[in-house]
Design a protein around this nucleic acid. Structure first.
Lengths: 230, 230
DNA sequence: AATATTGGAGAGTAGTACTATCCAATAGGG
DNA sequence: CCCTATTGGATAGTACTACTCTCCAATATT
């Protein structure tokens, strides 16, 4: 198909497709002449994947590029690919600025937690870094997470990880599996977050509330006065 | 304290503090003269909260502003505040573009799921919208989530929501509770995400891997050859 | 008195993700 | 073969976010 058809079928403007082509988020089409290339169903699938990642999961294009590079590497096995996907999707918290006492304590808490859980995590894992960063931030705000809480969250996280991997079938063709891996990493995250928020709403209503939330924004001009019935 | 001390104690540049003051992310200090204002410990706390939200949770400043507006409203009870925090932190997926069949199906799946779970969620809840959006994206990519999977994730989400609310004590002074609510919404999200990724790594190693991941970036010069931009 | 700091305002910058315009080379219909 | 539309390729421009820098006159500090 031509670029205009690719645009029509995906709902993405031609200019944006050209941009993705330039940015190596979409492989070039097969050049038919100097002014025409042919795009396949694979291109359409890839484009839809990129759009889902951009629109729904809000992954920056740079990280999407990294993931796709790994996806397109036929050498990588499933386990390694999952690792790359994780690496690409997680923002590395970079320099801990050295001698931050809160960071040190967070490092210690994290190491202890992982040891108790028996999880083997790479020392330089970005997820580990993110965990330390979050714990350090909580320390700094004066509300450090208790080991019990962390264990509780870890148990829930472990349950979701099992579910994540349940839908990855190593016997399927690589293409399909790869898509599954990437969508699992990114879109299931969104799903899980949304479910958690909905569960919070329900649980909050049960504990201290009087029904579901009123969803008005506290935008400029008030509108705050008309909150839940009193 | 003066602005320079606020800067030194928080590690945030003076220029950024001024910017936050302009953007109403930080209340003005008590004006002592035409060229000086006094800032309190509250300002420092607020500044640290904003930084944690920006750096760790990557919440856009606009959303932070919304949350803070709700936080500073003494009228709001805990339940309502939690609702505002959720509303502010979630990006609304906006217009479903009307007659998208995938969206319709996702709407249906979501409604059914919530009905089965017995969760009372507001029709216009942003979390609900986000869930529909994620499910619709998965549909579009050809890998719709099964009801069983969704129920599994929902159970895990419910567990975390219980933990989230366990650390909110309605008997505490409002200031402390409010901080707790906001950090719970945002920073625990990061914590949970990180834990899920670590659990994935561990579980993936158990199922198909041979140990923890090697964390090399597929960046230029890495194991994966770079893009063909010549 | 000399130097530093502050509040306030405005302009400038860097990064991200497009969007628009231009152009010459075709493609496709008549 | 002619004419219009489309395409690839390149470049420039836009909108938004989150700062960062500069300037200034009025203080504060030494």
């Amino acid at each position: 198909m031509r670029i205009s058809e690719l645009s029509r079928r995906s709902g993405v403007p031609v200019a944006t497709i050209k941009y993705y082509l330039r940015e190596n988020l979409l492989p070039k089409g097969e050049a038919v002449s100097a002014t025409q290339s042919r795009y396949s169903e694979e291109h359409l699938k890839r484009l839809r994947l990129v759009r889902a990642l951009v629109e729904v999961a809000e992954v920056p294009l740079g990280r999407i590029r990294s993931v796709l590079r790994a996806v397109d590497d036929p050498e990588l096995d499933l386990h390694t690919l999952l690792g790359f996907a994780q690496y690409a999707f997680t923002q590395s918290p970079e320099a801990p600025s050295g001698d931050d006492p809160d960071w040190q304590r967070a490092e210690h808490r994290t190491a202890e937690l992982l040891a108790q859980l028996g999880w083997q995590a790479h020392e330089a894992s970005p997820a580990r870094g993110q965990l330390v960063q979050a714990v350090a931030a909580l320390e700094r705000l004066g509300t450090p997470p208790t080991p019990e809480m962390l264990h509780g969250y870890a148990a829930a996280a472990h349950r979701t990880a099992e579910l994540d991997l349940d839908c990855v079938d190593p016997g399927m063709p690589r293409e399909a599996t790869v898509q599954q891996v990437v969508t699992t990493s990114a879109l299931m995250e969104q799903t899980l977050t949304a479910l958690r928020l909905l569960a919070q709403e329900d649980e909050s209503a049960r504990r201290f509330g009087r029904g579901p939330w009123q969803h008005e924004r506290p935008e400029d001009g008030g509108a705050v006065e008309g909150r839940a019935r009193e």
